[in-house]
């Protein structure tokens, strides 16, 4: 596994280099769309590699849709458009993180009165989570029977438990951002890597349970909760998306490019095969 180790070390060196350069930048956000807060969090993740998650509140069904509002295949609507305008005076070092994240929360709350807010910032393990003050579906206490499953199935079991605490609102798991290979990204990509392991929780806040589960992944993973408004008689639903981190790095040609981090927590792990990067990228 010499190659794997060497690659992983090179990769980490790149990430450190990135951190040194990216943190030296300031960032302005001027967003106006559905889910501006989540988009703002994504852009900050790209610049800083901070593990930021966003959770929307559970939404009640309503009688009629807003004209022009897109509907999904279940007849549900996304939340109304919102906005986020903020300039960060400093994203220069990791110590700036609490202040920067508090700034984004304050700006969003002030600019969207009557919207989903107010939001607050919550720290869970290595994550910074933007949570509605009224809580989200992940604020409930849940129990997931301990059993041997694949990572994707653990997530599904967690979603089922969350759904049962959310008044029957369906909670679906979305791992598409892994290119539909969440199990490989979690367990490793050799032939023997993907195998069940035991996990379960009892009377634990769903957010903490999720953070604990994702902590076992070989790939840094964040989450986002998106809830759609049900148009009666349809009920709304929520999507729990788990996603890898995409960051900006300077490549060997000196160009700033985006890289999605896979297996960044797998240094020395024999369940992961990662070739060196191809030439001239």
């Amino acid at each position: 596994m010499t190659t794997t180790l060497k690659v992983a070390q090179t990769f980490l060196a790149q990430v450190c280099l990135f951190a040194a350069t990216a943190l030296a930048q300031d960032l302005s956000l001027n967003l106006q769309d559905h889910r501006s807060l989540a988009e703002g969090a994504r852009r900050i993740r790209e610049k800083t590699h901070w593990m930021i998650c966003v959770e929307e509140p559970l939404r009640a069904s309503k009688a009629a849709s807003t004209a022009g509002q897109p509907r999904d295949n279940r007849g549900a609507e996304p939340p109304a458009r919102d906005k986020l305008q903020v300039t960060f005076a400093s994203l220069r070092k990791r110590g700036d993180r609490p202040q920067a994240l508090q700034q984004i929360v304050s700006a969003y709350n002030a600019q969207n009165p009557g919207g989903d807010g107010p939001y607050r910032l919550e720290s869970v393990a290595s994550y910074q989570v933007l949570v509605p003050a009224t809580g989200s579906i992940l604020s409930a206490r849940i129990g997931v029977p301990r059993a041997a499953r694949l990572a994707q199935d653990h997530l599904n079991a967690l979603a089922t438990a969350v759904s049962s605490q959310a008044g029957g609102t369906e909670v679906m798991v979305d791992t598409a951002a892994f290119g539909f290979r969440f199990n490989q990204a979690f367990h490793g990509n050799t032939d023997l890597a993907v195998k069940p392991f035991e996990w379960g929780v009892s009377n634990e806040v769903a957010r903490n349970a999720l953070a604990g589960l994702l902590n076992s992944s070989l790939t840094s993973t964040v989450w986002q909760v998106d809830c759609h408004v049900g148009i009666k008689p349809s009920v709304g639903h929520c999507i729990l998306s788990v996603m890898p981190i995409t960051v900006e790095v300077t490549n060997s040609a000196g160009r700033m490019v985006k890289r999605t981090l896979f297996y960044d927590k797998a240094v020395g792990n024999t369940n992961v095969v990662v070739p060196p990067p191809p030439p001239a990228q």
Partner: peptide, 28 residues
């Protein structure tokens, strides 16, 4: 290996989550 980001023209912010712009690399 996927050295560069792909594109997802299907995704909209209203879908939630984020666009699918890469794949977790496999081995065989």
């Amino acid at each position: 290996v996927f050295p560069s980001q792909g594109t997802d023209t299907c995704w909209r912010p209203s879908n939630g989550g984020q666009p699918v712009t890469t794949l977790a690399p496999g081995s065989w």
